[in-house]
Design a protein around this nucleic acid. Structure first.
Ligand SMILES: [Zn+2]
Ligand SMILES: [Zn+2]
Ligand SMILES: [Zn+2]
Ligand SMILES: [Zn+2]
Lengths: 163, 163
DNA sequence: GCAAAATTTGCAACATTATAACATTTGCAC
DNA sequence: GTGCAAATGTTATAATGTTGCAAATTTTGC
């Protein structure tokens, strides 16, 4: 059996953050999109862990920074990051998570642990194709898929309640 | 090719409502759950169409009824109906829709038309099994799946913008 | 460089969705 | 009927998200 995915094992999370920021800079350059300081800071905050973060949590962190931000500041930054495929919104949690497939065209599928809150984003081609098939079977043209799975991650199955 | 699903063709919607209410009464009896007048009325309101309805829309309709309800009344009724598998919450819309598979154990998959708002609930066993397979591949124990697909229904592909 | 245009940010108010806490009423068992 | 549990009423408040407009910044055209 293969190794657990990143969120499920100890890892150097600073490397996750650095990578995400580097990717973001590259992608924004390609898109001619401006990754301004606020946007970059919001992305960094979103990436502070593999747990999704609410908009008002981001707002709170910005305030701790000494940056006196209002909700629109955060929502606009999040919109920008979503537009550029750098973060995803988790509808079932009203929260946001850094995309681990930035730059790749993909349909995210999110495994959300109800015990530790960590989220793993997967691309599952077979799932995507079955979803399209099911929709097509009803004559429906699928454009955007929300696929969020709540449950227990491997760590929390073994040892409930840890971080 | 087979006929379109109910929401996508003209039909006697009163029959949808009657059926849903009859099913609800039967299911609540089985569960020893009390389908009180308010709960039944909320279910009926949710079923007024195949479009999802927000909690505050329900609240407004109750007020029109002359019933002076407050938000908790509606949310409690909706919780009850969800518990008993009679309605689903559409996370991506913050809205509620009548379950078309009440009484059957199922994982709902919702096709949401962005033009006319109608929602079709499907059960797609192949999708469910691929989702479980993908989750299991990461060691994740899936408990609850949110699967919502936005796009264009067959009618709106042919003739955009109608009801 | 410099003015005009476009984008981004600041800011205040507001809208929508959902819950908490506690009192009151209703249905049911005994 | 009394007592208990479930359901509902009521008030207030929390959490999430948006609108509209002004000020600042960046880009563009010259
Ligand atoms: Zn990490
Ligand atoms: Zn992604
Ligand atoms: Zn109908
Ligand atoms: Zn259903």
């Amino acid at each position: 059996m293969s190794a657990r995915a990143i969120p499920y094992r100890p890892h150097n999370h600073d490397a996750c953050v650095s990578q995400a920021l580097a990717d973001a800079r590259a992608i924004c350059q390609q898109h001619n999109a401006r990754l301004t300081p606020i946007r970059e800071r919001v992305l960094e905050l979103i990436w502070q862990s593999h747990k999704p973060l609410g908009a008002y949590d981001v707002l709170g962190e910005l305030s701790s920074d000494g940056h006196n931000a209002a909700p629109p500041t955060v929502y606009r930054a999040l919109d920008f990051l979503q537009q550029n495929g750098l973060v995803h919104r988790i509808a079932s949690l009203n929260a946001f998570i850094g995309c681990t497939h930035a730059g790749q065209s993909h349909t995210g599928m999110f495994l959300i642990c109800r015990a530790c809150s960590n989220v793993l984003e997967l691309t599952a081609p077979m799932v995507t194709s079955e979803v399209c098939k099911a929709a097509a079977g009803e004559g429906f043209r699928a454009e955007n898929t929300t696929l969020e799975i709540a449950g227990l991650c491997p760590r929390c199955q073994a040892e409930p309640g840890h971080d």
